[in-house]
């Protein structure tokens, strides 16, 4: 059985140090601009912070992956080119890319660099993955969260690269890297500006009875009664009225988080090389608890023991968790 790499999020330098301390094998992070898909205010790394963070991680035997997982608009490629040059100079261990132009640039200009294919590339078929491996030398694919464990096992036999799967965090099943819902409402693009539901356009209103209304610009996403748990203010997790439906319903996805703690042994048996924890936008408290829990769980499985799984439900969106498509395609 392969000992899987635990790939953990870091939204800030302090978050990176927390992830390293909690047992991350690898940490992924991004610069403070549109080159990564968590371009949120107050988040991410300046070049100086990134350089120090890479040094800190490497001194402790932890790898650093640089997320360059957005799609450069025409005429704005310099930002991605400069970020790649900085990452190469700092000695990051791999670039996480989604766009074929970015992949091609790094493959040509930084030939020694290791490339991981982001989930944002939405590559889930052997043909698509083999294309990226052949053309750009991609060494690992981060799979979209749409495949069952047996499908992942079958895929592993047909591709010449490593597989990384999400095991905890946001459960977004839109065709990743193609979702334009935020763009439709705000004019900003999740895939090119790196921001889904930009905070500047999010509004929360609370009435005297404690009901909270969530809006993205002028679109009401959800309304939570005072006793209801809440979710993220993203359109895909919204509850809407529709013809032939008496009440509001979750038209796309429900506010729920992925938690594959119980599937770790079968994923490891299926040949998954790396487990990814989502959440660069989350706090150090989240990183400490989630990374620590999965560190212990992975080590237990490798030791042939039944993993002691911490209860992480308090950290999940809407306080609900699912094994999603990994367990069954009928998960909804």
């Amino acid at each position: 059985m392969i000992r899987p790499e635990l790939v953990c999020p870091a939204g800030t330098p302090a978050g990176l140090r927390t992830a390293v301390e909690a047992g991350a094998d690898t940490v992924y992070c991004g610069f403070q601009n549109a080159t990564n898909a968590r371009n949120f205010p107050g988040l991410n790394f300046t070049p100086q912070e990134m350089e120090r963070a890479v040094g800190h991680a490497h001194d402790r035997g932890t790898k650093v992956l640089l997320a360059l997982n957005t799609f450069p608009p025409a005429g704005k490629f310099d930002l991605w080119r400069d970020a790649a040059a900085l990452g190469a100079e700092m000695g990051v261990d791999a670039f996480i890319v989604a766009d074929i132009g970015v992949a091609d640039h790094i493959a040509r200009e930084h030939p020694g660099a290791r490339l991981h294919l982001s989930v944002q590339a939405a590559a889930s078929s052997p043909e698509a993955i083999r294309y990226y491996c052949r053309e750009f030398g991609v060494k690992r694919v981060v799979l979209p969260r749409i495949l069952t464990v047996p499908e992942i096992e079958a895929l592993a036999a047909e591709i010449p690269c490593e597989i990384e799967t999400f095991i905890f965090g946001n459960h977004g099943l839109m065709v990743e890297g193609r979702c334009s819902l935020t763009n439709y409402v705000t004019g900003l693009s999740t895939n090119m500006d790196g921001v889904c539901s930009p905070a500047a356009d999010v509004h929360y209103d609370r009435d005297t009875e404690g009901t909270m209304t969530t809006r993205l610009r002028d679109v009401t996403i959800d309304r939570f009664g005072c006793a209801e748990t809440a979710g993220y203010p993203t359109i895909c997790k919204g509850r809407y009225h529709a013809p032939h439906r008496e009440d509001g319903y979750y038209a796309f996805e429900e506010p729920v988080s992925l938690n594959l703690a119980k599937l770790l042994p079968s994923l490891m048996g299926a040949g998954v090389h790396a487990f990814k924890i989502e959440g660069r936008q989350r706090s150090r408290a989240y990183v400490r608890k989630v990374v620590g829990a999965f560190r212990r769980a992975v080590d237990d499985v490798m030791a042939g023991e039944t993993p002691a799984l911490d209860d992480l439900v308090a950290l999940t969106e809407g306080r609900k968790q699912t094994e999603g498509a990994f367990k069954t395609k009928k998960w909804r």
Binding site: A14, A200, V202, D205, R206, M212, P255, Q281, S283, G318
Partner: peptide, 21 residues
């Protein structure tokens, strides 16, 4: 940083209004 703000928000123990950014 001993508690997760998103978790408190999900459980409705934390209320935010006004300038979300």
């Amino acid at each position: 940083a001993a508690e997760d703000g998103d978790a408190l928000f999900f459980s409705r123990e934390l209320t935010i209004t006004g300038d979300t950014e």
